[in-house]
Amino acid sequence: MSQLHLTDEILMAFADGELEEPTAAAVAKAMAEDPTVAKRIMDFQQSRRLTRSAFSMALMPDVPPELQAAVLAQVASYEADGDSKAGSDIKPPQDAWIRRKRPFMQMALAASLAAIALALGYFVGWQAEPGTGGLIAQLESPLVHHELNSSASGKDVELPFGRMRVISTYRLANGSLCREFQLRSSTEAAEAVACRNSHWNATFALASPISDAGYTPSGGGDPMAAYLQSIGAGQPLVDEAEAKALAEAGR
């Protein structure tokens, strides 16, 4: 196969789900083989998340009443006018515009990248900074495993390295039990998923430093939600269903 030159544009298009086959497959292969390629792709994903957060709907200023009123008046006069004025100097969109992105592919990609990030010891977070692996290093701690066996969702537990809280519990189609949980120290917060076969294995993790402003990038591109969807987590088990599942798993 000819050498693929991995420009920023190609890696970005891959991160955005805009790359056609077979180039996408070649990039996926390169990503799996080369951590620096994976890191560059993750940076492009991160920049998208950051931009989306900065422009999130929650931060969108209200439309001033005067503008709203002016446009409503235009619309009313246009609709009263009835006859549309045919012909214009504005080009209609091309058919090609209809091509939509594939949201599922995007989410699956986000999830697989995050899984690779975990394997490589990278974090997808506010800053992708290798080598500050405080909480991530604790994911396989026996203390964490113990709480995963016993803690009900929603309860905080103090551990030597920080506070742990199980968020929710899921039963996958293949029968395995998975739990989403958070670890929080004074400087760092991590969200993770662990699934149990004979013992607990972390399958997904995101960690980020806690910023002074308490600002958390979030929104449509939530990798945790994408990951849970990609493994077919479905609805969480609650109350008795959760307690029963934990009791069975502990046996």
Partner: peptide, 28 residues
């Protein structure tokens, strides 16, 4: 920005016939 939006809305309404239903309205 508010002036621009108002002007663009006026222009869009005057040329509403050039929008093809089924295509993306926001992009237009």
């Amino acid at each position: 920005a508010d002036d621009l939006v108002q002007g663009a809305c006026e222009r869009a309404l005057a040329n509403a016939g050039s929008w093809t239903p089924g295509t993306k309205f926001d992009a237009w």
